[in-house]
Design a protein around this nucleic acid. Structure first.
Lengths: 194, 194
DNA sequence: TATGTATGCAAGCAATTACTTGCATACATA
DNA sequence: TATGTATGCAAGTAATTGCTTGCATACATA
C-alpha cells in the first residue's frame, strides 16, 4: 500500500473527525475526502479505529512544543510570553484535529488519552522550564512555576476553544489582541518590581 | 404524557449526550437510563433531536449566572473574584451537560448554538458589570472591562475543561487551589496600587 | 361502570454503516 | 513476457438505529 495513499487517508480521517466527531465520520466520508476507494481504507488499516490509533501511535505526527523554543527567548518577560502564546496558538491550530478528537470523540478517548495528553504536557514542561530560568534571573515574584504554567495554558486554551465554538458572537476582539492584552495583564502580575 | 416522565427523559438525554456525544447516544440508551420504554420517548418528543431542542428551547433549564450574584459582592477584589470563580465552577458543573453538548455534538451544534451561547455570554456580562463598578470605586488599574471579563472566563473555562479531560494526569493541584492561586495572580495584575 | 389517557411490550421496517469478497486492471519489476 | 502488488469497482452481509404499529393494561375521572 502506497505511503501517499496511507497519508491521505490519515489526514482526511483526522480532519473529518475533528470536525464531526468519531462516530459521525463514516468510512465512506473518509474515502471520499481522501479520494480513494472505501475498500482501500480497510486494506490499509483493517478498521476505522485503527486509522486513528495509527495516526497517534505509529506516526511521528504528534509534535508537542519543542524545548528548543526556549532558545528564541530574549528573557524579557512580556516579549517571551508573547512569543510563547503565539506558539501555543499556532500549535493549537496545527494540532487542532487531535485536540478536538479529545473533546469530540468520547468513544475512543480513553484509548488515545495517553497520546493526546503529550500536547499540553509538553507545553507545560516548556513553560515551567522557562519560568525557572527567569526566576533564576530574578525577574519573577513567585516560584510557583507549575501554577503559572497552568494558568497560562488554561487562559490560552480556554480562549481558543471559545473562539472556535462561538467566535465573534461572543468575543469582541481578535486573537492577536487578546494575546497581547492578556499577556500584559499576566506580566503585570508576575513581574518582579523593585 | 406525564411531566415527570418527560423530565426523566430529558435529564437522561442530557446526561448521556454530555458523556458520549449526540450520535453515540441511542434512544435505547436513553430509555434505559430514564427507566421508560423506548416507544414512550417518541410518543413524548417525536424524535431524538427534538428531546435536545426541547431541553434547550422550551424548558427553563438554561440558567446563566444571574446578575443578582453581584449583591453578594463585598467590593474586595480578591474576595469577590474568588466568589465569582467558584460560582463559575459551580455553574459549569450544573450546566456541564449543556456545555459538553457544544463540544461533543457537532451534529446538532449549529441548531443549538444560540441557546448555548447564553451561558458564557451571561457570565461575561455579569463580570463586565462587576468590573465597571469596582472601576468606579477606583479599585481597578484598567478600564478594559471586556478583556478582563474574557481573560477571567478563559482562564477558568480552560482549566475546568483540561481537568475534565486529563484530570490529575496533567494537573498537580485541586480545583480550589487553582482558583485561589490564579485569582491571586489576577488580582495582583489589575488591582490599583497607590 | 364506562371511557379516555399514559404507558409497556413485542415485533418489525428501512436506512445506515463497518467491514468482506471476488474480480478486473494498471503498473512495476524480475 | 510474466508475475506480484496496489488499487478500483460491484455486490453483499450482519449489526445497529431511529422510528412505527398494534395491542394489552393500568389508572383516573365522568
Amino acid at each position: 500500500m502506497g505511503d501517499s495513499v496511507k497519508e491521505k487517508i490519515v489526514m482526511s480521517t483526522l480532519k473529518l473527525i475533528s470536525e464531526k466527531g468519531y462516530k459521525s465520520t463514516t468510512t465512506r466520508n473518509i474515502a471520499e475526502e481522501a479520494g480513494v476507494n472505501e475498500v482501500t481504507i480497510f486494506r490499509c488499516f483493517g478498521s476505522k479505529k485503527d486509522i486513528v490509533l495509527y495516526a497517534l501511535k505509529e506516526l511521528e505526527l504528534l509534535k508537542p512544543v519543542n524545548e528548543r523554543i526556549l532558545d528564541k527567548c530574549t528573557w524579557d518577560l512580556k516579549e517571551d510570553l508573547f512569543m510563547l502564546a503565539h506558539e501555543y496558538h499556532k500549535n493549537f491550530t496545527e494540532e487542532k484535529a487531535k485536540i478536538m478528537i479529545g473533546l469530540r470523540s468520547p468513544e475512543i478517548f480513553e484509548e488515545v488519552k495517553e497520546y493526546l495528553i503529550r500536547i499540553p504536557k509538553g507545553f507545560k514542561e516548556v513553560l515551567i522550564k522557562y519560568f525557572e530560568k527567569v526566576y533564576e534571573k530574578g525577574l519573577l515574584n513567585t516560584d510557583d512555576f507549575e501554577l503559572l504554567a497552568f494558568a497560562f495554558i488554561s487562559l490560552n486554551f480556554g480562549f481558543v476553544l471559545m473562539n472556535a465554538s462561538y467566535g465573534n458572537k461572543l468575543i469582541g476582539f481578535s486573537d492577536r489582541e487578546f494575546v497581547k492584552k492578556s499577556i500584559e495583564i499576566f506580566v503585570k502580575a508576575i513581574e518582579k518590581s523593585d
